[in-house]
Amino acid sequence: KMSSKPLSSLKIPRNILEKLHHHSIYKIQDLITKAPMELVKLLSIPLQKVQLIFDTCFENLAFDPTNALDLIKKNPVEEKLPNDNFDKLICEIGILRRGLLSEVCGPPGVGKTQFLTQLCITNSLIYPESSTIYIDTENNFSSKRFLEIASEKFLTKEKSEEDLIKMTKNIFVFKKFTISEFEEILRFIECEIITRNSSLLIIDSLASIVRREYSGSDSSILNERSLFLSKCSSKLKAMAEYLEVSVKIFSKFKTYVQLKFS
């Protein structure tokens, strides 16, 4: 894991590195758990130098997502969709308001993933200088569908092809299929949001990745699942507020309706 990378492999001055080792700080994960002022005291260096060390660590923690443009190049498409009033509705009801955590729920096949795809594009129109982070845990992100919707929206907004390309470069797709992979990206998601100037974070989906690894109906498993979801939700809610980012979590559920006729 990137957080296990030794500090000796980074561009940190030797004298500071020796002080870090003296305090049993050998890896990135050891350092980033310390508060900046704590390191100022331990290392006897100015806060500005401590910040430079943190910056070096965060640069080496940067993940390597696939942007939407690269995905589109692999799956080119020329079709167009009819126009709709989606953008206007989203603006009126404030779904993309920053600092807000929301959950998108519904049964399979109702169109939740398409809704999230449209949110990515609408967010780019509202906040053109920011980016979107899309964490895909089910391989649901469709570059073909994305380009269909994006092309139509940008056409009706009288945007240029250059604007469309810029937008696709600012949609960062992380494909994480296991709990360990998801926990790794979640641990450093604040760094990703700040580094990429993101205004929207989409998780598609949180519940499914948990069900895959916490399968079964045993009470202990259900408790572990609930604790994990609760911990993730609490962190995402707090992060949405203090980083002023809009967070959208996708969840699917099955509804069973039984009709009784006499």
Score class of each variant (00 low, 15 high):
residue 40 V to N: 02
residue 235 K to L: 05
residue 131 S to D: 10
residue 222 L to E: 07
residue 110 V to E: 00
residue 5 K to D: 00
residue 166 K to N: 10
residue 45 I to K: 12
residue 201 L to V: 07
residue 17 L to H: 07
residue 259 L to K: 14
residue 219 S to N: 06
residue 62 A to F: 12
residue 191 C to E: 12
residue 139 N to G: 12
residue 165 I to K: 10
residue 38 E to R: 13
residue 252 K to R: 15
residue 233 S to E: 11
residue 125 L to F: 08
residue 116 L to T: 01
residue 240 A to C: 06
residue 85 N to G: 04
residue 68 A to Y: 05
residue 175 K to I: 05
residue 142 S to A: 10
residue 43 L to T: 07
residue 59 E to D: 12
residue 72 I to G: 01
residue 119 L to S: 04
residue 191 C to D: 15
residue 21 H to A: 10
residue 216 G to I: 15
residue 236 L to C: 03
residue 127 Y to G: 01
residue 44 S to V: 13
residue 39 L to R: 04
residue 221 I to K: 04
residue 81 L to P: 05
residue 254 K to M: 12
residue 74 K to M: 04
residue 222 L to M: 14
residue 62 A to D: 05
residue 88 K to F: 06
residue 170 N to G: 05
residue 89 L to G: 03
residue 28 I to E: 00
residue 3 S to C: 10
residue 109 G to L: 03
residue 162 E to P: 15
residue 79 E to Y: 09
residue 197 N to D: 06
residue 259 L to G: 11
residue 55 D to N: 14
residue 150 A to N: 01
residue 256 Y to W: 07
residue 42 L to F: 05
residue 113 T to C: 07
residue 80 K to S: 06
residue 164 L to N: 08
residue 179 I to N: 08
residue 164 L to C: 08
residue 99 G to S: 05
residue 56 T to I: 14
residue 142 S to E: 02
residue 129 E to V: 06
residue 137 T to Y: 01
residue 197 N to W: 06
residue 189 I to D: 00
residue 253 F to V: 14
residue 140 N to W: 07
residue 198 S to I: 01
residue 32 I to E: 05
residue 15 N to Y: 12
residue 116 L to D: 00
residue 106 G to A: 04
residue 27 K to Q: 14
residue 133 I to W: 03
residue 182 F to W: 04
residue 196 R to P: 02
residue 163 D to F: 00
residue 132 T to L: 09
residue 6 P to Y: 01
residue 110 V to I: 13
residue 132 T to E: 01
residue 247 V to L: 09
residue 24 S to F: 07
residue 99 G to Q: 04
residue 73 K to S: 14
residue 260 K to S: 06
residue 71 L to E: 05
residue 40 V to I: 14
residue 141 F to N: 00
residue 179 I to H: 04
residue 35 A to N: 15
residue 48 Q to G: 12
residue 30 D to K: 03
residue 10 L to R: 00
residue 171 I to Y: 00
residue 190 E to I: 06
residue 172 F to Y: 11
residue 219 S to A: 13
residue 125 L to A: 07
residue 201 L to S: 00
residue 37 M to E: 14
residue 192 E to C: 11
residue 19 K to V: 10
residue 139 N to E: 12
residue 117 T to G: 09
residue 213 E to C: 05
residue 54 F to H: 07
residue 59 E to C: 09
residue 185 I to H: 03
residue 223 N to L: 15
residue 67 N to G: 02
residue 198 S to E: 09
residue 88 K to E: 13
residue 226 S to G: 09
residue 203 I to K: 00
residue 257 V to D: 07
residue 260 K to W: 08
residue 202 I to Q: 01
residue 52 L to H: 03
residue 11 K to R: 14
residue 81 L to Y: 08
residue 234 S to L: 15
residue 177 F to K: 11
residue 25 I to E: 06
residue 155 L to I: 14
residue 39 L to Q: 03
residue 58 F to Q: 11
residue 241 E to S: 11
residue 234 S to F: 15
residue 178 T to D: 03
residue 12 I to M: 07
residue 5 K to V: 09
residue 217 S to M: 15
residue 229 L to H: 10
residue 190 E to C: 05
residue 240 A to S: 10
residue 164 L to S: 01
residue 125 L to Q: 06
residue 185 I to T: 06
residue 262 S to K: 11
residue 128 P to E: 01
residue 46 P to G: 04
residue 210 V to Q: 02
residue 141 F to Y: 07
residue 239 M to K: 09
residue 152 E to R: 15
residue 118 Q to A: 13
residue 227 L to A: 13
residue 85 N to H: 11
residue 154 F to S: 08
residue 165 I to M: 08
residue 4 S to N: 13
residue 30 D to F: 05
